[in-house]
């Protein structure tokens, strides 16, 4: 069984994102980066599936980007991925171009399962997995918080929806996108990270994949969001209720 896990490089969630004065993007000079947290959860799940189902499961981490993306792919190798593959791409991504590229990777690699984050915490788009499933005409299970094999090629997936926890059954091959509660990703140990530095990362060009992913979403500009509220400190519950009633008039 082959599992592909796309891993996106995103600014660390501990970073304060600042917008460049000209609005063309974020100040990225000194940012720390990480594997998109949802992708790390997807990778953890793939590794757990391998641990449960044995050595015939192969987990491949996929990066789509320039050479910088190799650092996240090395983290993926250190966490336990069997292989890492980078699609060399220096343009700007949108979910559409990512889905196109991943579909080409899927045609080449022929995985049984693509496990990926439900969204990347930079653009917060929440589209690439669904688009990929649509392009491949595969089953999809989004926002997964529990994945169980009910048969060798049939999975029960619990999905976190606005209405509650929905359960569906899907057949492989399929695309599953992960939500936060699926698992707690393991850390890559320092020795594993050192070892991963020496492991090969396969690189393939878009041309070799036969795709020329043209983004369809164009970023016109980014604006910093500031909240202008000045907090008025109140002394006690009585004063708060008074303010809410007679000053803010919201109750």
């Amino acid at each position: 069984m082959k599992i592909l896990v796309p891993t996106k490089r995103v600014p660390s969630t501990d970073e304060r994102v600042r917008i460049r004065p000209d609005g063309s993007g974020i100040e990225d000079a000194s940012l720390a980066y990480m594997i998109n947290p949802f992708d790390a959860i997807a990778l953890e799940e793939a590794l757990q599936i391998r641990e449960q189902r044995g050595s015939n499961v192969e987990v491949t981490a996929i990066g789509i980007g320039n050479a910088d993306f190799e650092s996240e792919l090395r983290t993926a190798l250190a966490m336990g991925a069997d292989r890492a593959l980078r699609v060399d791409f220096d343009g700007c991504h949108d979910p559409w171009s990512v889905a196109q590229t991943l579909a080409a990777v899927v045609r080449r690699e022929k995985p049984d399962l693509v496990l990926m984050g439900k969204q990347a915490v930079d653009d917060d788009a929440n589209q690439a997995g669904q688009m990929l499933a649509g392009l491949l005409d595969w089953p999809q299970a989004t926002f997964a918080s529990k994945i169980e094999f009910v048969e060798p090629a049939r999975l029960s997936v619990a999905r976190e929806t606005d209405r509650g926890l929905e359960t569906i059954l899907i057949r492989l091959p399929a695309v599953i996108t992960t939500d936060l509660r699926l698992n707690e990703p393991r850390y890559a140990s320092l020795p594993a990270l050192m070892k991963a530095k020496k492991r090969p990362i396969e690189t393939i060009s878009c041309q070799d994949l036969g795709v020329s992913p043209e983004p369809k979403v164009r970023l016109v500009r980014l604006e910093q969001v500031t909240i202008d509220r000045t907090c008025e400190r109140v002394a006690d519950a009585a004063e708060l209720v008074h303010k809410l009633r007679y000053e803010a008039k919201v109750i």
Binding site: D94, P95, W96, A99, D124, A125, N126, Q127, A128, G129, Q130, M131, L132, A133, G134, L135, Q140, T142, F143, R159, E160, T161, D162, R163, K216, V217
Partner: peptide, 23 residues
């Protein structure tokens, strides 16, 4: 923009070769 639309519309967009903006 609910989980209903987030689940379904990107897939429909892919079938239509269409771009999408969410939220």
């Amino acid at each position: 923009s609910t989980t209903f639309a987030k689940d379904i519309l990107p897939r429909a967009a892919a079938l239509l070769n269409a771009a999408m903006a969410g939220d």
